[in-house]
Design a protein around this nucleic acid. Structure first.
Lengths: 195, 195
DNA sequence: AATTAATGTAAGTGTTCACTTGCATTCATT
DNA sequence: AATGAATGCAAGTGAACACTTACATTAATT
């Protein structure tokens, strides 16, 4: 389809950057062409329609199942360490995909929900993994026995809220602030969950 | 400007409902007219432009400074009780304004930021109030002395994350689930913050 | 019953948008 | 040097949009 791959990539990058700012509907193909340093027609020759263009962007930059792997392999059984690892990995992934998540949160009138879904409903999957982890830990007496589902939910929502806040903030949240938050919040939850 | 107030209100309500779904840019005045059961021209006679229409919607439905008042008057000095009150009041307010918040999160290419700002940057104000409260409590020995700023941030982000999640969820989050979450998360934080 | 304000109807304006077409140009491959 | 694919350029299409204008209709006020 494209002999010169850099042309297609330039278009995809410009698309993501612009749509993360203004949303799908309000980003015009003319703007994308200008930002990509490419003629508008080239966009349509590469991707056919504006809709397929965003689909391509999502397919290209989407993350795999890092998290599931983390839960299966990366955990030590030490609550504080594991929550820290989880929190850090989560924010890493979210930040790597922050623009795509931004686009999908803004939504669109015409775009099929399926395109936007995977990015935004992501805490649910994590919550389940974490709840399962807490249940196991609880059966080993390493965590208080009460309500793992809602405890996991609280932890994930806290991190999700932190991420969304940084997404909409005028000035970028510094890495230092993020680390400070991760450390302190993990400390809080460790204390709260310890028997 | 309008002798029959219900006409203006019907338009405002339709505007909020539609824009909460599709965002400002993608909602057309024609749709609004249809949903309000009103002729399109009537919209312009009432509000002049589409932009002023949304401004009117925000002015009409915006909430005052309930939260500041809550901190000044409504707190007992019992950590668990106070966090519970805070959490409940927060979700009450957010749910009452959920559509407007939805609109402002989706953003717009043309709309001035100032119109959308107040709704979305709201956790910051609350964080400051809560941090101050925690500092006071800590000086009374009722709360561990460590990092009130980030502890307050964690609490607010958790509730903010919960709200945003419910905003984008396909099926509405039931009131029961919300209450369960509030109870358990407040319990967690109370335990974590107690000396 | 007459007046007036609020609404409806119909038609249209200018603009912007996604997308198309035809042809000229560049550039790598042979 | 010749060929062919990728790109640029110029122009245009039809649809949708915010918004306007002129006039007819309704409903409340006097």
């Amino acid at each position: 389809m494209s002999a010169n791959p850099t042309t297609g990539e330039k278009i995809l990058l410009a698309t993501i950057n612009l749509m993360a700012d203004k949303g799908y509907d309000s980003t015009t193909t003319k703007e994308i062409a200008l930002a990509a340093g490419v003629n508008e027609v080239t966009i349509f020759r590469h991707f056919g329609t504006k809709e397929k263009l965003l689909e391509a962007a999502f397919n290209r930059f989407h993350y795999g199942n890092e998290m599931t792997k983390l839960f299966n392999e990366g955990f030590t059984g030490n609550l504080h360490e594991d929550l820290l690892t989880l929190s850090r990995t989560y924010h890493n992934i979210m930040n790597r995909n922050r623009k795509l998540i931004s686009i999908s949160l803004k939504g669109s009138s015409t775009l099929p929900e399926s395109v936007l879904q995977e990015a935004s409903n992501n805490p649910k999957h994590l919550k389940n993994l974490l709840a399962q982890y807490l249940t196991t830990m609880s059966s080993q007496g390493k965590v208080i026995t009460s309500n793992p589902e809602i405890q996991a939910l609280s932890f994930m929502w806290m991190n999700f809220g932190a991420f969304i806040s940084s997404l909409n903030a005028k000035e970028a949240v510094s890495e230092e602030t993020l680390n400070e938050f991760i450390d302190e919040s993990v400390r809080l939850f460790t204390k709260a969950l310890s028997p």
